[in-house]
């Protein structure tokens, strides 16, 4: 184990990785929309030359709001197949990270139908097929973004009868898309031996001193930073990592519509 770790970290010092990439380039990701025909919005993410490893589906229901003029967004992340206790804990961690960095910035007001009475409940369910999936948080955030882009909500109009205080929901023609302009995506920059590395594989993730998750929106503003793993960082490292993350996010946002993402920074 130690020798493998040394092999990987020494390679990264020389800007060379096991799969032939440089430290600041990614694998090609392909995102397909509308794979699950029975959910209003879905997306699946493949990494080049391998199988789909994340599938995300959305469901919409009508419910009672918790906050007066806001809808409800519910996220669940599951590992397909047998999941051990450690896997469940890891998934709970990932879920809280995604909620903190990404879904807190979702504009929930657009899901409101009748303030205080009826709203849309948006369920985002993520299934992870690959047990040893790496760079999970970035990939999940991209899959969720694509799935939300795919969601079609029925156009509705809430009517409250003034005399009897009864409420009706009238279904109009056509569908509405969810507005995700403000929704940030998450990019992960890892620190291995004081150098920043992008898009880690599972083996490299074991060598990472620290993982920095940046949530960045379309305008390039950083909305949140969370650090994982016990490594220590200098202030300059964080700043340079933030610059890298911003460049990566710009690349991703420009490629997200085409469904095929690959970035390489110099």
């Amino acid at each position: 184990m130690q020798s493998e770790k040394k092999f990987i970290t020494d390679g990264i010092k020389q800007n060379c990785r096991c799969d032939g990439r440089g430290i600041l380039s990614s694998r090609r990701i392909k995102i397909e929309k509308g794979v699950c025909t029975l959910s209003p919005g879905s997306a699946q993410l493949n990494i080049e030359l391998s199988s789909p490893h994340i599938i995300c589906g959305c469901k919409l229901e009508i419910g009672v709001p918790e906050v007066e003029d806001e809808g409800i967004v519910n996220l669940s992340i599951e590992l397909a197949g047998k999941s051990l206790m450690t896997d469940k804990e890891r998934m709970a961690e990932v879920k809280s990270l995604i909620e903190m960095l990404m879904l807190n910035y979702f504009n929930k007001k657009q899901l409101c139908i009748i303030p205080g009475r009826k709203c849309w409940k948006l369920f985002i369910d993520v299934e992870i097929l690959d047990k040893d999936a790496s760079n999970l948080i970035e990939h999940i955030s991209l899959t969720i973004t694509s799935a939300l882009e795919d969601v079609k909500v029925l156009a509705t109009e809430g009517i409250v009868n003034k005399n009897t205080k009864e409420e009706y929901i009238e279904i109009l023609d056509g569908t509405v898309r969810i507005n995700i302009d403000e929704l940030p995506i998450i990019t992960t920059v890892a620190q291995i031996n004081t150098s920043s590395v992008l898009d880690l594989t599972a083996e490299e993730e074991g060598c990472a001193d620290s993982l920095l998750h940046f949530s960045i929106d379309k305008n390039g503003t950083i909305k949140g930073i969370i650090k994982e793993n016990p490594g220590r960082l200098a202030v300059d490292q964080v700043l340079s990592a933030a610059n890298i993350a911003k460049e990566v996010a710009a690349h991703i946002f420009s490629d997200l519509g085409t469904g095929s993402i690959k970035y390489k920074l110099s």
Binding site: C36, L38, S39, S42, I55, G57, C58, K59, E61, S76, E78, A80, G81, K82, F123, D125, E127
Partner: peptide, 16 residues
């Protein structure tokens, strides 16, 4: 033989 049967939350045609 062990079998683990999972159904994705979004699989149903009606409610979640």
């Amino acid at each position: 033989i062990h079998c683990y049967f999972n159904t994705a939350y979004f699989s149903s045609s009606g409610e979640r």
